[in-house]
């Protein structure tokens, strides 16, 4: 691990004054310390933000507010989250291990880096880690890689489960920098790799995620997160689906659908949602889940897998129709 300076400021303003190029905020450390050990990340300044007042889970009239430092397990087991937004709770509980869920913050979860083996291996090239060096995944080991939102430069899968549920729910992140505060929809926060896979989101240098805001959605109570993976537990998704269904009088009035494990960013599926609103069968609607997919040699199985994952999630929430 490369040398760095360490500070643990008590206030947000103090933390922001220390932040800038070459700095990294440290919350749970489950991504940052891991990647610093691999020399994939080598910040010169590490700012421990765990003393900052960014805690609290509150369900208000406008929706759910989650402080950026709240830990994954605490959010998952919060009564209001589990009751009103089961898909958030389930996505969190299906993530990582209990130890990691005790450590990892929601802000850090949203900022976690891809698990692409080439990104994590300093001995190989990677456009995300070292812009312009090439993408071995295009022709190499790409079984776990994305089929949606890829480019010739990068096919790395976005690793977060809860981000998939949050994108389905139209959540926003509150960002604070030295120049002030702003909110960005999570769906707009993440950027497709295109020719610049090293630019992953709209966060500016020195800017900090302070809060996650999930709009109120009564029928989010009828929701689920289905995760398909190689092992029963403690594994990243091959395909996952976050689904909420507004079922009234036996009819689907509205639906939210997003998928993970298959996209370079958490992937909302407006075409599937529209088909469901139009009264199409779950089977026909879920067949649209892989629209635009560009599989690589090793991951073409994900096209059918993601369709079936969406179908299973819809059936779990609303039965067979």
């Amino acid at each position: 691990m490369r040398a760095f300076d360490f500070a643990a400021p008590r206030g947000i303003a103090g933390a922001l004054r220390l932040a800038g190029d070459g700095s990294a905020f440290l919350a749970g450390g489950t991504t940052l310390v891991d990647l610093m050990k691999l020399n994939v990340l080598a910040p010169e300044h590490v700012i421990d933000i765990n003393r900052l007042p960014l805690r609290g889970i509150r369900l208000g009239p406008d929706g759910l507010h989650i402080g950026a430092l709240e830990r994954m397990d605490d959010i998952a087991r919060h009564g209001a989250v589990a009751a009103q937004y089961p898909l958030i709770s389930q996505a969190l509980l299906l993530s990582a291990s209990p130890q990691i869920r005790n450590m990892a913050s929601i802000g850090g979860n949203l900022m976690q880096r891809t698990r692409c083996g080439y990104f994590r291996d300093m001995a190989t090239s990677c456009n995300k880690r070292s812009p312009g060096s090439g993408c071995p995944a295009q022709t190499g080991d790409n079984r776990g890689h994305a089929v949606l939102g890829t480019s010739a430069s990068c096919a790395a899968t976005h690793a977060s489960d809860v981000a998939v549920a949050l994108v389905a729910l139209d959540a926003s992140v509150r960002l604070r920098g030295r120049d002030g505060e702003r909110s960005v929809r999570l769906a707009d926060f993440y950027l497709l790799p295109g020719d610049t896979p090293h630019v992953e989101n709209r966060l500016r240098p020195g800017e900090l995620i302070t809060e996650v805001i999930v709009p109120r959605l009564q029928w989010a109570r009828h929701s689920t997160y289905v995760k398909v993976r190689d092992r029963q537990s403690y594994e990243f998704a091959l395909a996952s689906a976050a689904v909420a269904v507004d079922l009234r009088g036996g009819k689907v009035r509205d639906a939210r659908v997003a998928v993970g494990g298959v996209g370079t960013v958490p992937w909302r599926l407006p075409a599937v949602e529209a088909a469901l609103r139009a009264g199409q069968s779950f089977e026909r609607a879920s067949a649209l889940a892989a629209e635009g997919a560009r599989p690589l040699a090793g991951n073409s199985f994900k096209v059918e897998l993601v369709q079936r994952t969406v179908l299973r999630a819809l059936m779990e929430v609303a039965g067979s129709r």
Binding site: A8, L26, G29, T30, V33, D48, N50, Q99, N102, M103
Partner: peptide, 25 residues
């Protein structure tokens, strides 16, 4: 590197991975 759990300890009563925790924190 946070994958095996052999380093599990309790911090303020919660189980965490000591290999991914900087002692400075």
């Amino acid at each position: 590197r946070g994958q095996c759990g052999a380093c599990t300890v309790h911090v303020d009563g919660r189980r965490v991975l000591s290999c991914l925790t900087l002692v400075a924190t």
